[in-house]
């Protein structure tokens, strides 16, 4: 038998930015043509700007069957990469590697499972992808932000499934921190939890869920920073 494999595939792809969708003063989405890019809802890509020397990971914001490949980006003050992304205009080339990651949803699970999605800030991205891919999924999405304006594309979620916790204004579903809201919740024992966002929020949410008696194996995490 031959041990040679001359057909190694390359995984680099270059895409032209189709549209920048401004969502708040410092948050925007980047829409790329999807072409043949296949991924599973919940996965992320590594994004670079052609001609630049760095890349960052971004969860895919669009659904598996959407026309575009889209990511949601918050410009980080004094950040290195996001200020460059913010200056991107339609027509510029970006470099996409991936998809990567095991965070996400098995199609079989989506049909039968009961889910609570917990996100801080742009951590909502993989959940939008999941909800767009599996429109019949049984979920509740708890989203922690500072201001209600950061409830990105909230009209897309059924209002009884989307809880936005706002810490700095009272225009959300709940005024206060996501973790305070979480403490007040009761969930069915078979609930599966998916958490995405910054590690401090995830750590606190994990502690709360464990205190409520949920097993760590019922909880999946995607840490951004």
């Amino acid at each position: 038998m031959s041990l040679l494999r001359p057909d190694m595939k390359m995984d680099e792809s270059f895409y032209k930015v189709e549209e920048i969708r401004q969502l708040t003063g410092n948050t925007f989405s980047i829409k790329l043509p999807k072409a043949r890019f296949a991924f599973k809802a919940g996965q992320h890509i590594s994004l670079g700007i052609v001609g630049g020397n760095q890349s960052r990971e971004y969860s895919i914001y669009s659904g598996e069957n959407d026309e575009n490949l889209e990511v949601l980006v918050k410009e980080v003050e004094n950040g290195y990469f996001t200020p460059q992304l913010r200056r991107l205009k339609a027509g510029r080339m970006v470099e996409v590697h991936g998809p990567f990651g095991k965070f996400g949803m098995e199609p079989e699970n989506a049909k039968t499972g009961k889910f609570v999605f917990i996100a801080s800030g742009t951590g909502i991205a993989p959940f939008r992808s999941i909800v767009r891919t599996f429109p019949d999924i049984d979920y509740t999405l708890i989203h922690g932000v500072r201001y209600s304006i950061e409830a990105y594309d909230s009209h897309e979620y059924e209002s009884n499934r989307y809880v936005v916790c706002t810490s700095r204004d009272n225009k959300g579903t709940y005024h206060g921190r996501l973790t305070s809201y979480l403490k007040s919740c009761t969930f069915a024992p078979e609930t599966q939890f998916d958490l995405c966002g910054n590690s401090n929020m995830i750590f606190e949410a994990l502690e709360i869920l464990k205190e409520k008696g949920f097993d760590r194996d019922q909880i999946h995490c995607e840490v951004y920073f």
């Binding site: 095991k102 590690s199 995830i202 750590f203 994990l206 760590r216 194996d217 995490c221 840490v223």
Partner: peptide, 16 residues
């Protein structure tokens, strides 16, 4: 430390 493991983006915690 579970907190450090999260910052490291490790996929498990101490209990697991």
């Amino acid at each position: 430390s579970d907190k450090t493991l999260l910052r490291m983006r490790r996929m498990y915690d101490l209990t697991q």
